[in-house]
Amino acid sequence: MLPAAERMVSSVVAKVIVFCVALMPLIWLVTDVVLGRIGPDPGQEITERLGIAAFQLLLVTLLITPLKKMTGWPGWLRHRRMLGLFAFFYAVLHVFAFLQLILGWGDLWATFTRRPYIALGAVAFLLMIPLALTSTKAMMKRMGRRWKPVHRLIYLSAVFAWLHFLWQARSDVTEMVVYGLLLLALLFIRAYWFGVSSLVPLRKSRA
């Protein structure tokens, strides 16, 4: 095989693997539901697990740039779009599960205005929408230099998602602290390498 073709095959294989791994939380969830292992309050459990999966994938997406920088291998970048879209995918399912299984589509306005933790989650989710829409190659080309500053909104989205998570703690915040430290490390390392301004969304980067 030609080296170029070989590279393409291995890249496709890698993508399939990443795809399958990113799909695991959903597969586990569906398996638990089908086998009746989801517990007596499935709505709550399903919603929580989808939310956690969305947040975890957001963190993994944020890990790509540091991995590239540390290993010097640009190949990591090929997986970033799919991981980000998976984070969005789980966020969509999480929001839908919340509306259908917990809220029951009633009290929508009151829920979002009177319950700050839900408002925070909603902001985190809404910020992801433009990123998902502009994630295609064609959009990247069209937006050119404006693409990157727009996509820095992911930092804001991740911070809001974490606050949304933290606010739901009733007493023990161990899990939230662990995720918070991971997010902090991912943001800090960027500030260290590229300067604090590299974290500010919508600001034009100097060419």
């Binding site: 499935p42 709505g43 259908q100 319950r115």
Partner: peptide
């Protein structure tokens, strides 16, 4: 409750797609 409504409750075991409100 400041974080959620107390008007309804899910009687457990609740359904997967339709909560037992």
């Amino acid at each position: 409750h400041p974080r959620w409504s107390q008007k309804r409750e899910r009687r457990l075991p609740s359904g997967v797609l339709r909560p037992n409100w």
